[in-house]
Every structure is written in C-alpha cells, then in structure tokens.
Amino acid sequence: MPMNHRPFGRLALAIVLVSVLFAPATVAGTVDPQPTPAAYYGELTAAEEPIPAGVTVTAEIDGEVRGELVTTEADRFGGAGAFEPKLQVDGESGDAGAVVRFYVDGVEAAETVQWQSSDVRSVDLSVADPWESADGGGGGGFAPGTGGGGVPGGDTPSDVNGSDENSTDDTPATVDVRPDPTEPGVTDVAVTGGRAGETVSMNLGTDEDAEFSMTGLTLVPAVDGDFTLRISTSPTLPDETPALADEGVIEYVTVDHSISDANLEEVTFSFTIGTDVVADRGVDPDAIALYRYHDDRWTELPTSHVDTVNGRHVFDSDSPGLSVFAVALRGATADSSHTDETSDAGDDSDSSDERVADTDDAAGSAFDRPVLLLVVVVVAIVVIVGFRYGRSARR
C-alpha cells in the first residue's frame, strides 16, 4: 500500500515557516533602543517681562547642546497642544536624572529640570535682566550694561558660557557663600565677576563635630562671567546614581553648577574627616580617595592627605569637572551593573571599548538563548513526527 507523504511534507513546511518568522523577532528583541527624547514648552520672561519672539531657546546636558527651538511668539516657547512645536531634548543611555540647563539666546535661565525619557512638561523659563535692543526697542538681546546674565545670586550677571570681550575690569571675583538654613548639608555659592584663568576660592568652613566636612572648593574658569553652585553633602546615595559596591563610602557630595565643565580649567576639592572616623575603619588616611561619577562610571580621582589638624585629617583632590562625588576607601568598586570605577580619567577610551564589548556579549547571549530554544523545539517536533511516521509505515 503506497504511503501518503503529503501530511508529513506539510508539517515540515509549517515548521520551517514558523522558524523563519520567529528568528527575526528574536534578533529584534536584542536591540537596545535609543531613549525617547523629552519635550518642553512654557513661558519666557526677562526681569518678569515677556521676551519677544525670534529668540533661540537651547537645552544642554553636561555642557552639550541636546536641542534648540526658535520662538515664533512673544513670551513663550512651544506649546501644550499635540501639534504645537516643543523644545525636543535628546538623551543617551544613562542620562535619566541628568540636569537639563536652558539658555535664551545664550543667556542661562534660572530654571533646570531633570531629564527623563519621553517626558513632556511645561517649564517656565526666566532670566534676570531686561530684554531690549540697543535702540530701546523690543528684542535683540539684553540692554547694554546689564552684562547679559541671568544667573541667580549675582548683582551684575554675565553670560557664563562666553567671555565678555569688552570687559576691562580687573576687580577680583566676589564669592558669596550661604549655607541653606532649611536643608542641612546644603550650601549655595554665587560667584560674581569671575575671570578666565583666575582662581576662584570658596571657603565653606569646617564642622568640627561632623564625621565629614567639605571645607573648600577652588575653580579656575576658562571664561569671564558669573556662575552659581549648589553643594550638597550627605551619607545617603543621591537619586539616579549607582552606589559603590564597597561599604567604605564615608560621604557623598553633589555639586550642581551653572557653569559647564567645558568652561572650567581646574577644580580642587578640600575636605576633612575626623581622625576617629578613620581609626574606626582600621585604615590609614592615605587609603581614602575622592571618586567622581560621570559618563555612567565612577572614577577614582588623585587625592592627597595633606595634614592632620585639631583631630581632623585634611585632604585635597583634583577633578576634571563637577558632578556627583563619593569619599571612600581606595580600590572601591562600582555596582556590578556598571564598569570599573578605579581607572584614571585618561583611560576613558579603553573603558568605553570595554562597555561596548560587554554590550555586545550581552546582546549575543540574549540572541543565543531564544535561538537555541527554537532549535530544540524544532528538533523535538521532527523526532515526534518521524516516530509517528515510522509507526504508520510499519502498519
């Protein structure tokens, strides 16, 4: 009796089709999508007066321009409507929680937001000085003599991201340090009249009773202008920041800054730690270092134990910029989901290559497992069909 091979052939064809359809979905599932941009809109005011249309509103993250929008109406940028334009701000992997700074024709606004993927919100932006042209009409920039600033806390603000070519004033910068009475561990600093290449020293004082005390910060700006800092110290990990896996962290320091890292030539931290704190940990003071979290990784910074005064160890540490910092034992390691933090700043390219390799390995693993499962299922089906076919043939 001749055998009918058509049912077996149809089943085999079905298995092949299912395999072809399933494989692309498996590959697509391994791709890490680019974060969806955030979008902002809102009012624009200068000295509480509307800003005319035709200005450019720019958004920056870590000193890098991520989006800009030219206004078409007075006193506002973008709109809430679904079809109205908005200031679209692109993000990268790891940018969640990063500070977005806004500029109106290059003048920094007082307001900032934290970037989140797909975030759409209203942000009302304001700058401090009147907005008028040189002939007294509306639009065209700040009035002559105001300095073009808008950074809170200064009496004569100027554009911190560009030098004032007409400035001939040699007066040293004025530094106003004000601890926030409502938030322990938070200090606001306003620098007025900063000059390119000239050191700006900030004496933050010492809390003799605290385990850790941030005593000073020294900056050398690369441009003329005013800027503000908000320095926060806490033993608690800041939001959206991965912890050091080691338990040797003594303190976290966060520095929010209106001046970009690109406009800083030098940054030096000074801090003290109680001798009893170091002794309780059973380590030498030379075993303590400052770490910086930047570009999705912790990096150990050059740190020196310079003295011991009045029962406190004194330290200095140099940094290439401002962000989130941790005071911890040397050799501390980052959270397991992040790269090694102990390499020097000069090893960024190698670390980037390692992150790419890790990403490729993870993608390969995510691809291999579903494909292997698919192969096992197909083989099992073929075996079962072959077994049944053999039984039918024997009958």
Rank of each mutant, 00 (worst) to 15 (best):
E266G: 06
I259H: 04
V249H: 02
S232I: 09
E240M: 04
P242Q: 01
S234A: 14
E240Q: 05
A243K: 07
G248E: 02
E266Y: 08
P235Q: 12
I250W: 06
L237S: 09
E251G: 10
P238W: 11
T254G: 13
S260N: 02
N263F: 06
Y252T: 12
V253D: 14
T254Y: 11
P235S: 14
L244C: 05
D256I: 10
S232R: 13
A262D: 05
T254Q: 15
A243P: 02
N263E: 08
V249T: 10
T236Y: 10
T254R: 15
V253E: 14
V253Q: 13
L264R: 05
D246A: 00
V255R: 12
A245G: 01
E240W: 06
S232H: 13
S260P: 00
S232C: 09
L264H: 05
S260I: 03
V249W: 05
A243G: 07
Y252H: 15
D256E: 13
L264Q: 01
S232K: 11
D239M: 06
I259C: 06
T236V: 14
T254P: 11
S234K: 12
L264W: 04
S232L: 09
A262K: 06
T236D: 15
P242L: 00
D256N: 11
E265T: 04
V255K: 14
A243H: 05
S232E: 15
I250M: 09
V253L: 15
